[in-house]
Simulated scan of single mutants.
Amino acid sequence: MAQLTKVDGRKLRQRREELELSVDDVVQALAKREKRSIHPDHLRNIELGHKQPGVKLFGALCRVLSSNREAFLADPADAEQPVKAGR
């Protein structure tokens, strides 16, 4: 199913790096604080724009990265082609 909004993975990565967190740090925080288990490669694929997070995972990422959802949404011009949602 296609998502109505597209997440800009570059913005996720930028925020993660601002917080000086590694991909593994975020994956561990998701598991510990949000009870969400994902593979580090899945997060990398989201950041690279190859995958889109599902709604629940997106919310969990926002909480771990201490940001609101709007901060990570793609610009409307970039969101023309739907990408299959991941876990």
Rank of each mutant, 00 (worst) to 15 (best):
K51Y: 13
I38V: 13
H39E: 13
R87I: 15
G9C: 04
P76S: 08
E18N: 09
H42T: 08
G86I: 05
D25N: 09
L73Q: 06
H42V: 14
A77N: 15
Q14L: 07
F58H: 09
E47N: 07
Q14V: 01
A85F: 04
R69S: 08
K84N: 09
R69V: 02
L65R: 00
V83Y: 03
E17K: 04
L61E: 00
L12I: 13
P53Y: 02
L30H: 03
D25M: 02
L4V: 15
L12W: 02
G9M: 04
R44D: 13
L73F: 10
S67I: 09
D25Q: 02
F58T: 14
A79Q: 01
Q3R: 12
R36I: 15
I38S: 09
R33S: 06
E47C: 04
S22A: 00
P53S: 12
Q28S: 07
S37F: 12
A60F: 07
N68Q: 08
R15K: 02
R16Q: 03
S66I: 01
G9V: 02
R15Q: 10
D25Y: 02
A60N: 06
V23E: 00
I38Q: 08
V23Q: 07
T5L: 10
A2R: 10
N68S: 13
K56H: 12
E70G: 01
E20H: 06
P53V: 13
A60C: 07
Q28T: 04
G54I: 15
D41R: 08
D8C: 05
K84Q: 08
E18F: 07
Q28I: 05
G86W: 15
V7N: 03
P40N: 06
K56M: 10
R13S: 03
D24E: 05
Q14N: 04
L43D: 03
L43G: 09
S67E: 06
Q81L: 13
L21Y: 09
H42I: 04
A71N: 11
E20C: 01
Q52E: 15
G9P: 01
Q28F: 01
S22L: 02
G86C: 09
Q81H: 11
P53G: 11
G86Y: 15
D41W: 08
K51V: 14
L73H: 06
K11R: 04
L30G: 07
P40Y: 03
D75F: 05
D25R: 00
A29N: 01
K6T: 06
L48H: 11
Q52G: 09
K35Y: 10
R63F: 09
M1A: 00
A77E: 12
A71L: 03
V7T: 07
D8P: 03
K51R: 08
F72E: 03
L4K: 13
L57T: 12
V27K: 00
N45R: 14
C62S: 08
R69P: 14
E70V: 00
S67R: 03
D25H: 13
L4N: 10
D24F: 07
A29V: 01
E20T: 05
A71S: 12
E20L: 07
L43F: 10
E47V: 08
S37Q: 14
K6W: 01
R33G: 02
D41H: 14
H50F: 10
P53K: 15
N68T: 11
R13D: 06
A71R: 09
K11Q: 06
